[in-house]
Write a protein that binds this DNA or RNA. Structure first.
Lengths: 193, 193
DNA sequence: GTCTATAGGCAGATAGAC
DNA sequence: GTCTATCTGCCTATAGAC
């Protein structure tokens, strides 16, 4: 693993900011929130991240890197079905920690985001859908996953449905709402249990 | 139709605010934005809506009423399949006007919303899923819609997937992304075309 | 790399004249 | 029902001492 580009303090700032954005959104968190949580001053945060837009951009780049690393681990699993279940589990874990997907949250705020942040959000969704499309294609080739449309279309359905399920489930404060959707999605791929 | 509870000016304020919230979110619009769009003062808006939280609450109640009225119109259509297509079309129309579903947007911000607003968001999703569940059940009874799970589960999948598809499609600025999902959802109910 | 102090702006909200 | 003026508070960001 390559060394991080950030100092320990910068990483801790990103950790706090990540949680705040996933729970409240970009427009509803402030340097003051981070400062209070870390018990440092607002000015100290500016030393590590010149502007809020910079913080947001580096936040999403790091999130994307972590997500790619998680997908690479999933790729080690031998069975496409197991890989798919693990993929869904990643979303469920985020929801269980009382958070929305970082990029799903930022997607809602897309019109009020700095352009570099907007671009990173798009990159995240494109990469995720591409990875999932390859997984679905492999599963169909292996005869263990079944669907009628293209792998791309099926991946788009799955990613958007998982994002939407997180969104709505959070409004209910009920993880079950997400689980119902996840089960139906897997059932639609011939994975009824 | 019962007379509106709002004056003309109040209705116009709600129209502007609705668009702003659907495009930017609750935390990214201000009384100043509405004042500028209507060319009146911020103080005038406070005359009609004492606080921002009041405005938001009445906004969502009105949105819900309009949505219920749209569903009642759809209920006049004889064929469950036609009703379902029309239902999806309602979401597509919102997306085409460069907006997110009002309640989908507010769902993202749920942790930073005043409690009365949170409650109205939940009411909206519950009512929508209930209506759709009844539609799906009627279609299956009539033999024109096919699905394996419960009508409730299928309705939850559909509503959350449509919300998520709007969310992600908006981040791409590409309506096609939504249409792909809508087509797959309908195909999954035996409505391939 | 941390701090205090502060600039400059915008937020939501109120007072009171017309 | 509209306005101007104003309050208070928080925001992002910067200056400069330690």
């Amino acid at each position: 693993m390559a060394a991080s580009r950030h100092t320990d303090t910068a990483e801790r700032i990103l950790d706090i900011a990540e949680k705040l954005v996933q729970q409240r959104g970009y427009n509803a968190f402030s340097y003051a929130d981070i400062a209070a949580a870390m018990r440092i001053s607002k000015a100290s945060i500016h030393h590590h991240f010149l502007a809020k837009a910079d913080l947001a951009e580096q936040l999403i780049v790091r999130y994307h890197q972590h997500f790619v690393a998680a997908l690479a681990e999933i790729d080690q699993l031998p069975d496409p079905r197991k890989r798919l279940r693990r993929f869904v589990q990643v979303y469920l874990d985020v929801l269980r920690s009382d958070r929305m997907c970082l990029c799903g949250m930022l997607a809602a705020e897309i019109d009020s985001l700095p352009k570099p942040v907007r671009d990173e959000v798009r990159r995240f969704f494109t990469a995720t859908e591409d990875w999932l499309s390859r997984l679905l294609a492999a599963g169909r080739r292996a005869g263990t996953l079944a669907f009628t449309g293209s792998p791309d279309a099926e991946a788009t359905l799955m990613v958007t449905a998982l994002e939407g399920a997180m969104l709505v489930a959070r409004s209910y404060g009920d993880v079950r709402h997400f689980e119902v959707v996840a089960e139906r999605l897997l059932a639609g791929l011939g994975m009824a249990h």
